[in-house]
């Protein structure tokens, strides 16, 4: 295995282990709840980066995968008595399949048209779910407290789910890393640079795009399932929150699109920053303004994000931080 020789591979494993075990020391639940949010952001940003950074397709509605994952999971667990493991896996697969089917359609659109269509899809699904009685309409789905009994009580269940979310985070990073080094990834980057040229060079663009779109849906859907299972409820406004979708793009940009570590770093920093802004009373009124100004500054002056800046400053850092 060549992977074992790469320092970056071990860095991902170490980071995942740190996330998994650090809050366990002293049973620190506050820290766990902070980290779970970071982890979810990292999952969303990393998978979104597969589309934006690797393929050059700006998915503005990526949150629809997260939301659908949450809904499928809670519905299977709540109404059909599935265990959560089977439910999240199923939710991941079915969401991926839906993305694949949808992808063959909307991925024919390019640039702003694709971006608009993804917004449209998210809003359509949100409005549909809000009216869909099987899934509780605008009230959403609530899990009874007894659900957690099977997992040894709520306290224990939450730790289990936390570890699973961290696992999904680790897999997300490995996936990003693996795709980037693969022939598949090379084809995607060619599509990002110039889709017509890529096609003439032999890249099966329609298949590749649908595949990566579908792949980028899987882990966010699983994460959505775990996250909303942990919360015990899911409502349309929260599941299909377009704002979080766009914030994920900000995270990707902040860290550096097209790199493996960038979106993760961006997501982590964004979560910290957001927390800081929201909990500092003098700033909380202005958290959106500050985030907006920050985003604008990145776009205007550092479009490569943090990683782009680092690479420029210390080119050798590429060898460790991909």
């Amino acid at each position: 295995m060549k992977a074992l020789k790469s320092p970056f591979f071990w860095l991902i494993l170490a980071l995942t282990a740190l996330f998994a075990f650090y809050p366990r020391l002293g049973n620190n639940i506050t820290l766990r709840e902070t980290l779970v949010l970071s982890a979810v952001y990292i999952i969303l940003a990393s998978n979104l980066n597969l589309m934006i950074g690797y393929t050059g397709y700006v998915n503005f509605g990526s949150i629809v995968f997260f939301g659908l994952g949450g809904y499928f999971t809670l519905w299977l667990v709540g109404a059909h008595g599935w265990n959560v493991y089977a439910a999240v896996l199923f939710a991941g697969f079915i969401t991926s399949l839906l993305a694949m089917a949808l992808g063959f359609g909307i991925l024919r659109l390019r640039g702003a048209y694709f971006a608009l269509a993804t917004i449209g899809v998210n809003e359509a699904v949100k409005d549909f779910v809000s009216n869909f009685d099987t899934w509780g309409g605008s009230e959403g789905i609530f899990l009874p407290f007894t659900t957690y009994k099977a997992m040894g009580g709520a306290g224990k269940a939450l730790w289990t789910v936390y570890l699973l979310i961290i696992l999904v985070m680790g897999i997300s990073l490995l996936l990003s890393w693996y795709v980037k080094r693969s022939k598949f990834g090379l084809g995607l980057f060619a599509i990002r640079e110039d889709e017509d040229a890529a096609i003439v060079l032999g890249v099966k663009a329609p298949k590749y795009k649908a595949l990566i779109y579908s792949l980028s849906a899987f882990l966010p859907a699983v994460a959505g399932g775990l996250y909303f299972f942990k919360n015990g409820s899911v409502v349309p406004e929260e599941a299909f929150n377009l704002h979080l979708s766009i914030e994920s793009i900000v995270m990707v940009m902040l860290g550096g699109q097209g790199t493996v570590s960038g979106p993760a770093v961006g997501a982590f920093l964004y979560e910290r920053l957001r927390g800081l802004l929201l909990t500092t009373p003098s700033l909380s009124n202005f958290h959106l303004v500050i985030a907006g100004v920050l985003l604008l500054l990145i776009i205007l002056f550092a479009p490569g994000g943090l990683m782009g800046w680092l690479y420029k400053k210390w080119p050798r850092i590429r060898e460790v931080l991909e």
Partner: peptide
């Protein structure tokens, strides 16, 4: 500054403006 760049840039720049307007408006 970003008018000739890829569509992502103008989408994000105008979205940033939106965040700023809504932020100030909310305050």
């Amino acid at each position: 500054k970003i008018i000739s760049g890829p569509p992502l840039m103008s989408l994000l720049a105008t979205f940033a403006v939106s965040m700023i307007i809504i932020g100030v408006g909310t305050a």
